[in-house]
Write a protein that binds this DNA or RNA. Structure first.
Length: 575
RNA sequence: CGGGCUGUGGCGCAGUUUGGUAGCGCGUCCGGCUGGGGGCCGGGAAGUCGCAGGUUCAAAUCCUGUCAGCCCGACCA
């Protein structure tokens, strides 16, 4: 059946919704694809539902192609299962929790590692049953501190999550590569421009981890791409080239400087350059930022991070690496608990002695000398050398990555980009298998601990990403692979001649296998054209003036190009 | 959780400074015109002015409290 606009459950809006910021979000609402219900929670209207199902269908096809099998878990899960993996606590406030009439506690699943692991454990026992990959397309619930950007960060969203179960690391690698390949095919079919970036694994735990990112101005993820080699990484995971270790013997002994009223890097550099012959810049100073960390369910502890003075600490990057440990800027009260710490004049020299954990960014290379705090109000110290005058407990990539930083792999220039995370693949390892004792019985009768991979695609988010990448000034612009309709027919003109011809054409196209949307509504031509552009079907057919010569016009939504086609050849042309 | 802003027919907004009994555009309904880029004329329907309390003869407007939403940050797929 040809869909007639007069019958379609659709209301387009002329004005942008006040609560939508992103272009894709605005247009999805205006064109009647989605409606907001509450923050981060959306209803899919008929056209939106079609898009969604088309995307889900592509995901399903490619997952099935690599031999993954679809299951469906409940979203409502009992507390106990999350308790045994430690995530009832680790997930914190992000978990939606609820109680039943008996007071038993439940949660709405934010992700389903536990369920998959337990299912496999309960069903499989022999090594002969492996490897296996399972997936589901499921609604997930996360009580985000701040939902935003429409479909991009919802509290309720749909995710395809899959898990591979293998007997050994080599098997995991095979499963991982298979999923990676499937993801490449999926995102190509969706018409997305995407990059594969090194990533950190986050709250899920695990090792090897890559993100699929769709470059977009409004994307929430920041990543870098090397202009020279193909190195691409999320800024949380990026490794930049650091100077070679220095020879500490070239640096004179430490020297304490009298530097009153210099609690900031700028004031310090200014004063030192006034007083000393040897000029320094902010990059010669060592800035020690006082932070606090907390294990899930634990207490706050001090952490000081040393970075070159011309750099800021990137809390997001730091946090990504410390997961699931939380990290925040330390409050003054906590700093006071260690008497040697003088804000503005903190140096690394005696931190180990005071029992304060001290980490440095890798740019603070072994043997390098610095101007830094002397742990006394109004005093700094010069020629403080790593490895001689202080020894950090370790290194952590903490500095804010800058455009033009050097690639850790080839030394080329890194360029910073923004993107939407549409997929994530990573090697989970044995975390959940250990937590739940997932073993297979081996050929020798001995148990083999299973190793897992975890793979996610935000299906609803992918819809938004496609919209974000393909839209133009006048509306949405769907790739043919996921468009709700192939052809949008717009009859224009007085009387019934054009409409009759349009109906006939629509029926013929439908018979030829096209999905057809026919605008049979009364109204001005302009309004119909505007709606057609807004809705964004790949091909728009105009049945109007040209009909007098036996022609119709065919407009390609993406390019905007129009051509005249004889009505008699229209079906062949558009099939 | 911090900072900023906003709550007025379905949607987008004005009105609040200076209290006087609610208005505009779009949409929608009826009639007609129009027919190639959100067209025109006429006539309708639809609003507890977020909520609660207070001041006042009188509150969308002033005061107190509260709830909700959006944006930035923290946090996060």
């Amino acid at each position: 059946m040809v869909t007639r606009m007069s019958q379609l459950f659709l209301r387009t809006l002329r004005d942008d919704p006040a609560d939508a910021e992103l272009p894709s979000h605005r247009l999805l609402v205006r064109a009647g694809y989605i409606r907001r219900v509450s923050p981060g929670v959306y209803t899919w209207l008929p056209l939106g539902k079609m898009i969604f199902e088309n995307v889900a269908g592509i995901v399903r096809e490619e997952m099935n192609r690599i031999g993954a099998q679809e299951v469906q878990f409940p979203a409502l899960l009992p507390r106990e299962i999350y308790e045994s993996s430690g995530r009832w606590t680790a997930y914190g406030d992000t978990l939606f929790r609820l109680s039943d009439r008996k007071g038993a506690e439940h949660l709405l699943g934010p992700t389903h590692e536990e369920m998959f692991t337990l299912l496999v454990k309960s069903e499989l026992s022999s090594y002969r049953d492996y490897p296996v990959s399972l997936y589901q397309i499921q609604t997930k619930y996360r009580d985000e501190a701040r939902p935003r950007a429409g479909l991009l960060r919802g509290r309720e969203f749909v995710m395809k999550d899959s898990y591979s179960f293998d007997l050994d690391d080599a098997g995991l690698q095979v499963s991982y590569d298979a999923h990676r390949g499937a993801y490449q095919r999926i995102f190509s079919r969706l018409g997305l421009d995407y990059r594969i970036a090194f990533a950190v694994s986050g709250a899920m735990g695990g090792s090897a981890s890559e993100e699929f990112l769709a470059p977009a101005t409004y994307g929430e993820d920041t990543f870098v791409q090397c202009v020279n080699c193909d190195y691409t990484a999320n800024t949380e995971a990026v490794e930049i080239r650091t100077p070679d270790p220095h020879d500490p013997h070239g640096t004179p002994a430490p020297e304490v400087l009298d530097t009153p009223d210099t609690p900031t890097i700028e004031s310090l550099v200014h004063l030192v350059n006034e007083r000393r012959e040897q000029q320094i810049t902010a990059a010669d100073t060592l800035k020690n930022v006082v932070l606090k960390t907390r294990e899930p369910g634990g207490k706050w502890e001090l952490l000081i991070v040393g970075v070159p003075g011309d750099r800021d600490v990137d809390m997001k990057r730091l946090g990504g690496q410390l997961e699931p440990v939380e990290v925040e800027v330390a409050d003054p009260e906590l700093i006071k608990t260690v008497s040697g710490l003088v804000p503005g004049y903190i140096g690394p020299q005696r931190l180990a002695e005071w029992g304060v954990r001290y980490l440095v960014d890798p740019t603070v290379v072994p043997g390098s000398g610095w101007v830094t705090g002397a742990n006394e109000s109004g005093k700094h110290a010069a020629n403080v050398v790593r490895g001689r005058d202080f020894e950090p407990a370790g290194e952590i990539g903490a500095v804010e990555i800058r455009d033009g930083d050097r690639c850790g792999r080839c030394g080329g220039e890194l360029s910073i980009m923004r993107g939407i995370e549409i997929g994530h693949v990573f090697q989970l390892g044995k975390k959940y298998a250990d937590a739940f004792g997932l073993d297979a019985q081996g050929p020798d009768g001995e148990p083999i601990r299973i190793t897992m991979g975890s793979y996610g695609i935000g299906v609803s988010r992918a819809v938004a990403a496609v919209a974000e990448q393909t839209l133009d000034d006048s509306g949405l612009c769907w790739p043919a692979a996921i468009a709700p309709y192939d052809v949008h027919i717009v009859p224009v003109g007085k009387g019934s001649e054009q409409l009759d011809a349009a109906v006939k054409l629509a029926d013929e196209l439908e018979a030829a296998g096209r999905k057809v949307l026919l605008d049979d509504r009364d109204g001005s031509a302009g309004a119909k054209f505007a709606d057609a552009d807004l809705l964004g079907m790949p091909t728009i057919v105009i049945v109007g003036k040209a009909l007098a010569e036996g022609n119709i016009e065919v407009k390609d939504r993406k390019s905007g190009e129009r051509r005249t086609v004889p009505l008699s050849e229209a079906v062949a042309e558009l099939s």
